[in-house]
């Protein structure tokens, strides 16, 4: 009886994990080199912004919403750090950027909870606002960031710093899940039933969007450290892939189920797709086609497998 519970909790993360294994294998075959710690560290560095963004997206999706403002907030954090760095120094600039991200997330939450706006459009509007502010502050890409880049690009005990950060974040998630998990899942699973169980759903929503804002800010930090400069439109390309990664990681868009480990794996898998396409040497025009096709096929295969296995269980 019990192992089934464990299985049902871990199976949702499987597509993401399997996908990354498959893609790494493909890459090894195509590039002819063996997998190394170095190549994993590279992947983590490049995939970090999307992975962190996916973390926030996953949290929001599990509690029954969606956050399209992640990209805008990422850009805003990136621009704020770059613009404020010369006058304030790295840490104060970082602090301002994170505080702004939190506020943006909080506004999302307030608009959704008290303004009764549907999350999709509320966060869409917020993404316009955030990237609008970013664009006003920094109309042309530029600026440079030196502080922290060294640390970020460096390694600790052989693993890239990014991995450690990610591990810390995922552990944090486990803690959150342990104490608030049921409330989060209940709110996403069925809001009015959660209310009947005396869950304060408004508070869950507010916290989730605020946290997602903060996490988007962190993703903005990751992207800043990676490109070491500012770009007011850098975040846009992470929004929809973060949603795709969440779903690919086995977490239902309907909310109330799944986890965050699978989505993070799937985020790296999506990054790895571009690496694979790159090593095959085909035209970059095919890039979007291939990565989109991988998302669709990955989900299709996962769903077919799921259906097969549930049929087997029935008979």
């Amino acid at each position: 009886m019990k192992w089934r519970g464990w299985l049902s909790r871990w199976v949702p993360g499987f597509p993401g994990i399997i996908l990354i294994v498959v893609l790494l294998t493909v890459n090894i075959i195509l590039s002819g080199t063996m997998i190394s710690l170095g190549s994993i560290n590279d992947l983590v560095q490049v995939g970090m912004p999307l992975a962190v963004a996916t973390l926030g997206q996953g949290l929001v999706i599990i509690q029954g919403g969606i956050d399209l403002s992640i990209g805008g907030i990422m850009s805003l954090a990136n621009v704020l750090i770059v613009v404020l760095l010369p006058t304030l120094g790295f840490w104060p600039a970082l602090l301002v950027a994170m505080a702004t991200s939190v506020v943006a997330g909080l506004i999302n939450g307030v608009v959704i909870v008290y303004g009764r706006v549907q999350p999709l459009v509320a966060t869409l509007a917020m993404s316009f606002v955030a990237s609008g502010v970013a664009l006003s502050l920094l109309p042309q890409p530029g600026g440079s960031v030196a502080t922290g880049v060294g640390v970020y690009m460096g390694t600790f005990l052989g693993f890239s710093t990014g991995i450690w950060v990610l591990v810390v974040l995922l552990l944090l998630w486990l803690v959150v899940k342990r104490f608030f998990g049921l409330a989060i899942y209940a709110t996403g699973g069925q809001e009015h039933a959660a209310q009947r169980n005396a869950v304060n759903v408004n508070r869950v929503h507010l916290w989730a969007y605020t946290l997602s804002g903060l996490i988007a800010g962190l993703a903005g930090l990751a992207v800043t450290l990676e490109i070491a400069s500012g770009d007011a439109s850098i975040g846009a390309s992470y929004v929809l892939p973060s949603v795709a990664a969440v779903v690919l990681g086995g977490t239902s868009l309907a909310g109330g189920s799944g986890g965050l480990v699978g989505p993070v794996m799937a985020a790296f898998a999506l990054t790895e797709v571009s690496n694979v396409v790159f090593s095959t040497g085909v035209s970059s025009y095919y890039q979007t086609i291939v990565s989109s096709a991988v998302v669709i096929l990955g989900l299709a295969v996962a769903n077919i497998v799921k259906r097969r296995s549930s049929l087997l269980r029935q008979s």
């Binding site: 303004g115 917020m126 955030a130 502010v133």
Partner: peptide, 23 residues
Amino acid sequence: IGSGAQELVDGAILLLVLVVYGV
């Protein structure tokens, strides 16, 4: 007012409309 401010105002008005409407 410049493209950044444009996007900002656009989004803010949209947000406002949605909130007023949602309520």
